[in-house]
């Protein structure tokens, strides 16, 4: 009898696992809400939000520096060239803001803060952070978040124009709300893949995070001043992930020919 009961238990468990696996690999579920907004509309929304932030918020002023622009162009073009097929046209802007931060906005817009450039010790570190942000763009995390928080109708109303209050609110939310852990992991994976494709060592991300953790190891400090840490939790596991990222055979990193220190001095 005991054996027969165990066999039944095994059969039931296998049935459960099979049902779960079937729907895990072939999920039958309504489309994710962000898919209701086309890429063209997302780009339009991104443009509106970026213009609104840059024109109204004094802490988000564009930083104009030719040395930085050319360095950034080298970094971002290497990354975007390796991304492959994409629906987005990416726009990178450096803001004159001391926070160590980088933010993704709808429609392929990425803000890089001056504090991040000053803190990083090599162009590879900045590339690693940008690659991560590109992951958020490609996976449409920001639109997903906005639709989740405001509902599709609000987003579509803002797109129609005329609702400046809501537009500012969307912008603030896009800038401030944290992604969840799964989204961060998703962006990390995408970023690390992209770094390898761009002949940049994924260890650059680990180096960056380790230095950041070492420098600001108390939560209060991070909370007050450095949004980057706050919105990107679980740094230890991410450092590990970057360090242990399997490199393809014969991988040779191709260093950027940028004089990083002199570029930083020009800021």
């Amino acid at each position: 009898m005991k054996k027969s009961i165990l066999v039944d238990l095994l059969k039931l468990s296998l049935l459960g696992v099979a049902i779960f696996a079937l729907f895990y690999f072939y999920p039958i579920f309504p489309d994710k809400p962000e898919l209701d907004i086309s890429i063209a509309n997302e780009e339009k929304l991104g443009k509106l939000i970026v213009e609104d932030i840059l024109s109204h918020d004094p802490s988000f002023k564009k930083l104009d520096n030719p040395a930085l622009d050319s360095a950034l162009c080298l970094i971002t073009s290497r990354l975007t060239d390796s991304i492959g097929l994409t629906d987005y046209e990416f726009h990178f802007r450096v803001l004159d803001n001391p926070a160590i931060n980088a933010v993704t906005l709808p429609g392929g817009n990425i803000f890089i803060f001056k504090g991040l450039i000053e803190f990083s010790e090599s162009p590879e570190e900045v590339a690693a952070v940008i690659a991560h942000e590109l992951g958020h763009v490609q996976k449409r995390h920001v639109v997903h978040r906005l639709v989740r928080e405001f509902g599709i109708s609000v987003v579509l109303t803002v797109l129609g124009g005329g609702d400046n209050v809501m537009l500012s609110e969307l912008g603030r939310t896009a800038l401030s709300t944290a992604f969840d852990r799964d989204e961060e992991k998703d962006a990390d994976r995408f970023g690390l893949d992209l770094l390898v494709k761009s002949q940049i060592s994924p260890k650059a991300l680990a180096v960056f995070f380790r230095r950041l953790s070492r420098k600001y190891n108390t939560m209060e400090k991070v909370h007050e001043n450095f949004e980057f840490m706050m919105t990107h939790p679980h740094n230890n596991s991410r450092i590990k992930m970057a360090m242990e990222y399997p490199l393809p055979a014969g991988f040779q990193p191709n260093a950027f020919t940028i004089n990083w220190e002199s570029m930083k001095n020009s800021l």
Partner: peptide
């Protein structure tokens, strides 16, 4: 109520529970 998202594990689990 939190930032957790609907992922494939959740979808698989919903269907498993519905069928059960």
């Amino acid at each position: 109520f939190t930032d957790a998202t609907v992922n494939d594990y959740y979808v698989g689990y919903i269907w498993l529970t519905v069928i059960a």
